[in-house]
Design a protein around this nucleic acid. Sequence first.
DNA 1: TGTTGTCCCAATGTCAACATTTGTACATCG
DNA 2: CGATGTACAAATGTTGACATTGGGACAACA
Lengths: 224, 224
Amino acid sequence: MRRVRRRGLAHEAADRIRESILDGRVSPGSPLREVELAASLDVSRGSVREGLAVLEREGLVRSEWHRGARVMDLRSRDVDEVYTVRAALDRLATLSAASRIVPAQLAELESLVQAMGRALEGDADGLTLIALDLAFHDRVYAIADNSRLTDAWHGVRSQVRLIQLTRIEHDQAHYRDLLVGEHHELVRLMSRGPSEALARAAEEHVDSARRALIHLLGQAPRGR
Amino acid sequence: MRRVRRRGLAHEAADRIRESILDGRVSPGSPLREVELAASLDVSRGSVREGLAVLEREGLVRSEWHRGARVMDLRSRDVDEVYTVRAALDRLATLSAASRIVPAQLAELESLVQAMGRALEGDADGLTLIALDLAFHDRVYAIADNSRLTDAWHGVRSQVRLIQLTRIEHDQAHYRDLLVGEHHELVRLMSRGPSEALARAAEEHVDSARRALIHLLGQAPRGR
DNA sequence: TGTTGTCCCAATGTCAACATTTGTACATCG
DNA sequence: CGATGTACAAATGTTGACATTGGGACAACA
């Protein structure tokens, strides 16, 4: 049996605040005041504070000494950073997963890809596609079964989600073209075990999204 | 001017506790009681609590609900995870740094390598070598100039430090053979810009250390 | 004798009050 | 009139007290 995990109010508070950010109810840049949140969540400031610390390590929130916390405002440079790191993590996750994956897990991934296909044909909204995309990659990280790797992934995951949210119209176009094809190819390569081709595909899968986003956001983020 | 960074008691407390762990004054597995620490550091339990949360995100401390925090006890499996993730991060950091590095920074890295050589000839203790090794890689991450990457690095850095500490006699042997040579080679390759050879060297630099540690610790950590 | 239930204590989780800092508006001075 | 200093309000940082939980010792029971 999987033992129940009791987490306390701080994590609960973090979940609620994360939701309201990722649902777009509070926009990037807006302040997250401890007293306000404590009142609206009906917990003490201490718990809110601890929850905000959780969100800060996820990169969703930025806080400064005696100046409080604000919803992270992700600019072009930040998108570049997040996707660059994600590419490196995904490369490792995909390779590790490929060396440990069993047929049942391959089938599970493939069924997620098919769900993407159905969602596209059914003209599903962007949120559904984003959810399926993240679910796929979450599964890959779970299969890789490396808690440090998962922690590092969680350090950028929420930011990826936030970027996708704010660029949702773009993502829909991007998804429509490549979502099923690229993921299917990843599964196919994973079924053959780790390889240089798989490593490249995993990196490229993320990097093409990065390039598209950077292009969309206007200019090169750094002095390249 | 680099503006001063005021951080509050929680970070100060985290620093002190981290020191006592990394200095070996508290051994892996031992409990870190909030009241004890609060008394000995002369701050409130709240600040200690926040400090322990910082150390938890660094992977130095593991805490469970209503059961308190303990110094992380790193077993074979954990060493494997940490070094596997570190290899992926170092690969990216080294490639990114290579594409941005300027001559002055190359010289700085090379001078660190020479310091390693002098330390080895002067029969310095293991702690000095560990410090120089980490200083070198910290510089590479700083040159890569990607805050998400640096955050991810900080998520494993302290654990690397802890592993090196507990295996210090082994590391000295490992260092004596490869320290100067491998780092010098990394600098040389970086001076020529990013390349597949550099990527492999950076990965292999970490992975050889991983293999040596795993071998030392006895058995294969996972079902490979 | 092994198992179950109860009590108790130590430690953490939570809270609300107090202290400190920051930013701003306004007064003061050169 | 611009620069500097001061007072105040709003928010966070810090603290000690109270509530809740987990684990172990011990007794009751089959």
